[in-house]
Amino acid sequence: MTLLKARRRAFDILERDLPGDQVADAVHYFLIATILLSVIGAVLATVQSLEIRDQWWFTVGEHIALGIFIVEYVARLWVAPEHPLRRGLSAGAARLRYAVTPGAIIDFLAILPLFFALVHEHDFHAVMVLRLLRFLKLARYSSGFNALYLAVKRERYALVSCFLILCAGVLMAATAMYLAERAAQPVSFGSIPASMWWAMATLTTVGYGDVVPITTVGRIIGAVTMVSGLVMLALPIAIISSSFSEVISKHNFVVTFSMLSRLRPFSELGAPELGDLLPLLNSRSFDRGHQVVRRGAVAEHLFVVLEGRVETETPDGPVVLGPGDVFGLVPGAEGALAAPVRALAKTKILAIEENELHMLTARHPGVVRRLVAAARRNEEG
């Protein structure tokens, strides 16, 4: 096996993009288990009564975990040029670009205790805190973390507006309390900045109780502030929860750039096209025998099979579709009835909604033309 083939194989294992790759699955779950054991050990080591931090097996286990994370970090740097978005770069530039991504930074934080211990050998508690940062590595393997990130990203403008409203509420509450309480409590409410601590603690419904109004007017302002805080916090919570629920329903598994680049309709796309396409794709899973599209349903999505097999009806009879095949809605046929489609095995499918398909058509018409041509070929059998 040549070096390039070995690097490609290592990339496939680390990214776990090939369906049915048992080696990639084993490495995936092994790394998750290592992360969990390392974090649990770091937590238990802070319990004095257990006295495990001086045990030889704890030290050996920590060094083994650290070695595993170092190997993983170095391996991910090595395979960085294989990523679809970095294939046009030199090996050094691709690795440098990967090194500043959030995932790479988290990987570096996982091995940071080694370098920290070399400088501060006896600062046990600081090293323990750094070890707990390894828990963040689970974000790479969890679809839940990915869904939360997508939910926050989708609603970022609304969340910024909520933050500005909260800042305005803090300023108004602090100003009102300063005017009402500055004479009675010059230490706690002698200035607007000093009053902001009370305003923030009250608006966020924490209410530490270390600073409280004592005048009648101050208590009335405090009551209004507490009620306003419930409303202000309910806004971002409702926005995030509804967006998170919607993302979870549309994204049953994490879709990566390398997954996308392996499919026939997307194999020749460049980094800009893949970058615009990935956020538009919804990922769905179907068990064997389940209906992907029901008979008589209106075509509202364009589907691409990622893994598994589905069967659809055509004028020439049933046709089996596999990875890379396209079916469903095509532009100009809105409102048409879709052919029934059934999963023949456990199947993973990527879906593009009607409005997102129009958005993609405006940005990259060539991509849509390829998808439409593939879908029409499959419909005609």
Rank of each mutant, 00 (worst) to 15 (best):
A184P: 06
L148C: 10
A183R: 14
L138C: 02
T225P: 00
C162E: 05
L130W: 12
I214S: 15
V160F: 14
H125F: 13
Y141R: 05
T175A: 00
A201N: 15
R140H: 10
P213C: 10
L166A: 09
L203F: 01
Y178K: 00
A147G: 08
G229H: 02
L150Y: 10
V227A: 14
L230M: 10
A147Y: 09
S142A: 10
T204C: 04
I165D: 03
R134E: 06
P186H: 15
R134H: 07
G190E: 10
L159S: 09
R134K: 11
G144M: 08
G229R: 01
G209N: 13
A194T: 08
K137L: 13
H122A: 07
V211G: 11
M177Q: 05
L164N: 05
T225E: 04
S195A: 15
Y178N: 00
T225L: 02
V227P: 08
L159V: 11
L203T: 01
I165L: 12
T216V: 12
S143V: 15
R131V: 03
G207C: 07
Y141K: 06
L230I: 05
G209F: 12
I220Q: 09
K153N: 04
E155N: 04
L203V: 02
D123R: 08
I221V: 09
Y178P: 00
A184W: 11
G218I: 01
E181Q: 09
H125Y: 13
P193M: 13
Y157Q: 11
N146M: 13
M196R: 09
R131G: 06
L179A: 04
L164W: 12
A199S: 10
R154G: 07
C167W: 05
Y141N: 05
V211Y: 13
V212I: 15
R131A: 03
S188F: 15
S228F: 10
A176G: 03
G229K: 01
M196D: 08
A199Y: 09
H125I: 12
A173V: 02
V224L: 13
A199G: 07
L166G: 05
